[in-house]
Design a protein around this nucleic acid. Structure first.
Length: 419
RNA sequence: GGAGAGAUGGCUGAGUGGCUGAAAGCGGCGGUUUGCUAAACCGUUAUACUUAUUUUUAAGUAUCGGGGGUUCGAAUCCCCCUCUCUCCGCCA
């Protein structure tokens, strides 16, 4: 959530920043400021009336005295009620705007309308020259390590199962990634995958992106689309963190659920876009002045996973038009897919600044004497398991049709070298 | 799911209608004493919003789990919700 004071004081800056994402926000900002102005005028009146009421009530010492002011106070209360009703209406209108405004992009973020204007930052690894290239789902079905047809029969489209050594390979990836994160200083947390709407509101998935989520209507709960939700919420809830608690670096392996509304027809075959997938998520919670550095660390930690798996990748800096709602700066890591002759996203590492912290009231105190300050939150995949699985299958495909197991994973698969 | 108990400041914990933004203790911060440390003593110590401002503060409003109600006046009385604890039932 943006700071209403910033919107008031630096209106032009906020306008520029938000319109660099999308023009629809300019009018919203104008509306917001107008209502905000009205609310404050009302608040002055209300506070004045309340002040009158309080001083009248305080002057009363006995029941008999109360009689003399009863009428006056009742009249004041009537006025207050009227004004407050109006003020609540305005409040509601402001919420309808402010919770739907995205974060302001950082200055370093390139201007652009869509993914075509993203900027490549670096490339790692040699793109293999292969004599045999197949789609991962072709290989996986041939090797009987993955099932689509059966699974869609009882689950519907965009669901699939890992089978046999395929399931073991998935498990190896999970363990490998969690171990890497632990070694890099992350605290592993195993969180629930069902959350209340407030948690999703805090991280920015709600209220704007309800259609992307699976909802348990009976209990007003949601399946998480990413463990960013549970990890970022972990220390929220009004508990102040201390200086020495920071930075927090958390990781979690969870299953994630996305309805993929609006993705009809895209990546319909294979593992790239499923309704349910596994992911190891990395979250940093840190002080404002550290978040740039933490962001670089986070993205490096994600990249190092691919380096150890010896998979070619590139790092992309997303442009203003392609960035997610809560991010002020975002790197995508894309891994090489031979069958597509292209790189595909495998991790998205966002610095959200204080945007989520404001929504969550996630704050800390520098020391006992200082005021609470909002923290900065960052998140990134480290990595998406399914896409990583698919990338390994394709990149490690040998000429004879077998799949080599990456060196670092063999100890997680009882020394198995070939599938 | 059934029965009961509870939720107060950084923490412990008092408070059943006004003088309570909140006793007391602990902790924190500042100071006195001291060769240094400890102890003792004194003072101070919540958050948000609004207005004014000489940007330091001052004033006002709200906040005792959340929401609503009664009342001139609510931490205190009433209703609803959430969460925690104990016992019973069920269960991986």
């Amino acid at each position: 959530m943006l700071d209403i004071k910033t919107i008031r004081k630096e209106t032009e800056l906020v306008k520029n920043k938000l319109s660099s994402r999308n023009n629809e926000f300019i009018q919203k900002l104008e509306e917001l400021l107008f209502i905000d102005e009205n609310i404050r005028k009302l608040k002055i009146q209300i506070d004045e009336l309340k002040s009158q009421r309080n001083s009248l009530s305080k002057s009363v010492k006995s029941k008999e005295e109360a009689e003399t002011i009863k009428e006056k106070v009742k009249e004041i209360n009537n006025q207050i009620n009227l004004l407050e009703e109006k003020s609540e209406q305005y409040e509601e209108e402001i919420n309808q705007i402010v919770w739907y405004l995205p974060n302001m992009p950082s200055d370093e973020v390139p201007q652009g309308k869509d993914e075509s204007e993203n900027v490549e930052i670096k490339k790692y690894g040699q793109i293999p020259i292969k004599t045999r290239v197949e789609d991962h789902f072709i290989i996986a079905e041939r090797k009987n390590i993955w099932d689509q047809n059966n699974t869609t029969r009882f689950c519907g489209s965009r669901f699939s199962s890992f089978v046999g050594l395929g399931a073991k390979l998935q498990r190896a990836l999970i363990n490998f990634m969690l171990d890497e994160a632990s070694q890099n200083g992350y605290t592993e947390i195993s969180t629930p995958i069902i959350v209340k709407s407030n948690a999703l509101k805090g991280t920015g998935q709600l209220p704007k992106f309800e259609e992307d989520l699976y909802k348990l209507t009976e209990d007003d709960l949601y399946l998480i689309p990413t463990a960013e939700v549970t990890l970022t919420n972990f220390f929220a809830n009004d508990n102040l963190l201390n200086n020495e608690d920071l930075p927090k670096r958390l990781c979690a392996y969870t299953t994630c659920f996305r309805r993929e509304a609006g993705a009809a027809g895209r990546d319909t075959r294979g593992l790239i876009r499923q309704h349910q997938f596994d992911k190891v998520e990395l979250v940093h919670i840190c002080k404002a002045e550290d978040s740039e550095e933490e962001h670089e660390k986070l993205v490096r930690n994600a990249e190092k996973i691919l380096e150890k798996l010896e998979l070619p990748y590139r790092r992309i800096l997303l442009c203003t038009g392609d960035m997610g709602f809560s991010a002020k700066k975002c790197y995508d890591i894309e891994v090489w897919f031979p069958s597509q002759n292209n790189y595909r996203e495998i991790s998205s590492c966002s610095n959200c600044g204080d945007f989520q912290a404001r929504r969550l009231n996630l704050r800390f105190k520098r020391d006992n004497a200082s005021k609470p300050e909002f923290l900065h939150t960052l998140n990134g995949s480290g990595l998406a398991i399914g896409r990583c699985w698919a990338a390994i299958i394709e990149n490690y495909l040998k000429e004879d049709g077998d799949i080599e197991i990456p060196q670092v994973l063999r100890k997680y698969m009882n020394g198995l070298e070939i599938i």
